[in-house]
Nucleic acid binder design. Structure first.
Lengths: 327, 327
DNA sequence: TTGAAAGCGCTAACAA
DNA sequence: TTGTTAGCGCTTTCAA
């Protein structure tokens, strides 16, 4: 008889200890007004039954804190890891809890958000939210790095690339770049970012067209770079900093000097970009600011001062060009 | 009357829509057996009242998934970020949710774990757990990077450094190192790790003693290195990889060749260690394995097959020496 | 298609 | 010091 077929409740413990439910509650919560002997007896009974208070029963009475669900693509990507950290940090002052979930690696990525939606007070996500969140009626939903079209389904924190991408084009033009290449990752949702970059850089390019080349996140970089160099490229804009750092390493192996032979640009502005040699120029995004906007939206939605969708639930955070040694 | 003084409940919606609570439930959850017109009316009423179903009420009935609380020191430290990611990933196959919390930055760091303990089914933490978790009676608690002494309070996943540290000593001896220095961070809990490292390296050192020098995480590295070099040191073991990477950058600025003039070793085995030049030798810890052990412990504790404390709740994950170019 | 009743596990307030 | 009562908000089961 190791365990029961259902989890012990406060009533089971009360019966076993021969006291009332309330006394069990007092013992479990270190409340005053209970004799040491009784507490002892109750705690023993609880232990014998492997009793653990239900967080739902408790929450129902105590009105627990707001819980925000955060769904990201892949936590092994530093960008999402930093984003998660920033959201956790931004929620802390409100006393909110954050449940973190990852879409990739899940059996059914699309179900992650829907599942989580039933367990939290607000849902924040990155490229994984659909309008079809069963039982999410009225729940604040914020799409990160979303587009204005998505405002129909909920709030959107947009990450505005246009301006900084234009700045980058100017910067590269000054440096004499004539044949930039965008190196993309073959992951879901990457096309739009790469497209914007390529479009912004088009004026630089000889034929008015900037090639976009997809690579694997972790493999085959040297070969890809060899081909890119053979094509005469003089600048590479990587999909993100992590890829840029890997490309940098591959370039070192190929003994291609950066920035002399090839200029290299990352996107995201992660810490790692400034820790490598040469330090990476990056289209940086202020992750703290994204998190702050997100929390502001959610907070307003919960309070009723921000609409759950539409233009009033739209925030934009601009990229910022950080010029460093790699260009 | 924009908002009510208390959050609307299902009853409020039912009244407003002129239906029963069940009908509201049916409408909110897209269940069958309700006419389109009624659903419409209910949803409108819900919207007007800003009604959002309580996750506690729901959870009470539905028996939601296990929720694990994870308390780490500081998510802006990549090590904790990777750990958090690994735990989230290890919990996913069980269908568990993970609530992530950070101790540093919190108004009362010691209260973070205690607070969270009331909202979750199990608590996993890093250097922040005390035995005094009010209301945590019977709850699985796992201390990460804990010591066997802490087994009195709960489970412990120990990170065993001794063996790999001895390996490191051998490795450095082969390289001719005579004056190693341990560079520590002035953060809580760092003393023990540095002490173990210094002790393991003591046989190498001329006087049988390895100096431990504390630095700030992000500042003053060049000055500290200048002094270290002036003292004649020929190897630096940094508290973690992040610090090692920063030291590497500072050494580059000082034009000190690594490993020729100074050998450099990190601790943690983060991805970043292999992305810099020269790649960093590191005492690597298998974070996935730590997460797996943690989940195994928690799972067993919940099932009753692993005791909540004592030797049966002890797991150890060894460090592994990864030799790369920096030594 | 709708409603009524029951119960999920817990704690706060009050009574003994 | 202990027990009793009364909800907390929701879904499931059964009845109309």
């Amino acid at each position: 008889m190791s365990g029961a077929d259902h989890r012990a409740t406060i009533v089971d413990v009360a019966e076993r200890a021969g006291v009332s439910r309330q006394t069990v509650s007092r013992a479990m919560n270190d409340m005053p007004g209970i004799s040491a002997a009784t507490r002892e007896r109750v705690l023993r009974a609880a232990q014998e039954l492997s009793y653990r208070p239900s967080r739902f029963g408790r929450g129902l009475v105590e009105q627990g804190p707001i819980t925000v669900g955060l769904v990201v693509e892949d936590l092994s990507n530093s960008y999402f890891a930093e984003l998660g950290a920033a959201v956790v940090r931004a929620c802390a002052p409100h006393g909110w809890n954050v449940v973190l979930a990852e879409a990739v690696h899940a059996p059914d990525p699309d179900a992650v958000a829907a599942d989580l939606a039933r367990r939290v007070d607000a849902l924040v996500g990155y490229g994984v939210l659909t309008a079809a969140l069963r039982g999410a009626g009225g729940m604040p939903v914020v799409q990160l790095d979303g587009t204005p079209e998505q405002l129909a389904d909920g709030g959107v924190v947009e990450i505005a690339r246009q301006e900084a991408a234009a700045e980058l084009a100017d910067h590269l033009r000054e440096r004499g770049v004539r044949r930039p290449v965008v190196v993309d990752l073959a992951v879901r949702g990457s096309a739009s970012r790469s497209g914007v970059l390529a479009a912004a850089l088009a004026p630089l390019a000889a034929g008015g067209e900037v090639p976009i080349r997809a690579v694997d996140a972790r493999r085959g970089h040297e070969e890809a770079l060899r081909e890119i160099l053979a094509d005469g490229a003089d600048a590479v804009i990587a999909f993100n900093d992590e890829l840029a750092v890997r490309l940098l390493r591959a370039l070192r192996a190929l003994e291609v000097p950066v920035p002399e032979r090839l200029r290299l640009v990352g996107v995201d502005g992660l810490e790692i970009a400034s820790l490598v040699t040469p330090e990476l120029t990056s289209l940086a995004i202020d992750i703290e600011e994204v998190a702050a906007c997100t929390v502001e939206l959610v907070s307003g939605m919960l309070a009723g001062t921000v609409p759950l969708s539409g233009e009033g639930a739209h925030r934009a955070v601009p990229y910022r060009l950080e010029v460093r040694a790699s260009t």
